[in-house]
């Protein structure tokens, strides 16, 4: 058996207890292998525990343990950083808690905040910077304007107030504060200096941010917000809302450059 084959077999044995021991292995090898199995599982379970403290606090120890085991079995890590073991845990939660969307929403936010903490440092493009850059814009420049956002800034449609839930699961909490929305809203996360942060926004803001992040132009944004077959009033209203969103993104420091 080649070294590559031995290593593949070893990993299979770590991942799956039912894998037969290689030929020539005895009890001492089985004992040693059990240590490596334990190390593997403890490391991954520990990583998920430190990444998803609030999710754990919300769903409780036993449910969180079950969720972690499900995630680790379904998503054995392949990346060199163990932090990546937590990627996609929100989707695991969505499958395990289909009637409690807030669990996946909370897990998404914890993962996003972790990712933001190590994102590249950037210098915000301020409202003043923007005012100077856009002073001579004509209609064509406005319509074709693209925005460069902070790396790893992210948004998601949510059905619960994550600000209230997040705060209530932190230190000095006086109990879980779960507030559902009648209509889905949005959560927008980014980094202020070195500190990851987030706010709740309306669902249109989330759609607009995603569209601009994916390279749509400011003109497209107005169209997106105006809806199908808009009249003049709808277009004017959409333009005002797009302007307000642009102002908010600039004031929050989310914009780091223009794509002209």
């Amino acid at each position: 058996m080649s070294l590559a084959d031995k290593q593949a077999a070893f990993v299979r044995a770590i991942l799956d207890d039912s894998t037969p021991l290689p030929e020539g292995w005895g009890n001492s090898h089985a004992l040693g292998l059990s240590v490596y199995r334990g190390n593997y599982r403890n490391a991954l379970m520990g990583t998920l525990e430190s990444t998803y403290e609030r999710t754990a606090a919300y769903i409780g120890e036993e449910a969180f343990r079950t969720a972690r085991i499900n995630h680790v079995i379904a998503n054995p890590p392949s990346h060199w950083t163990i932090d990546s073991a937590g990627e996609g845990f929100d989707q695991t939660c969505a499958k395990l808690f289909p009637n409690n969307a807030e669990v996946a929403e909370l897990a998404w936010l914890e993962w996003t905040m972790l990712e933001l903490a190590t994102a590249p440092n950037t210098k915000p493009f301020t409202a003043q910077d923007f005012a100077e850059a856009s002073a001579a814009f004509g209609d064509a420049e406005w319509m074709g304007l693209g925005l460069e956002f902070q790396p790893r800034a992210a948004t998601r449609r949510v059905t619960h107030d994550l600000t209230a839930l997040w705060k209530s699961l932190g230190a000095d909490s006086e109990g879980v504060d779960l507030r559902g929305y009648e209509e889905p809203q949005g959560c927008l996360a980014w980094r202020e200096g070195e500190r990851p942060t987030f706010i709740m926004v309306d669902a249109d803001n989330t759609r607009a941010f995603e569209a601009m992040q994916n390279g749509e132009r400011y003109g497209d944004l107005v169209g997106l917000l105006a809806g199908d077959q808009p009249d003049d009033e709808a277009i004017q209203s959409a333009a005002q809302r797009a302007g307000a969103m642009l102002g908010q993104w600039l004031n929050e420091g989310l914009v780091v450059g223009l794509d002209l």
Partner: peptide, 8 residues
């Protein structure tokens, strides 16, 4: 291996 990382 090329497919999995044991992180051990």
């Amino acid at each position: 291996t090329s497919a999995h990382n044991s992180h051990d």
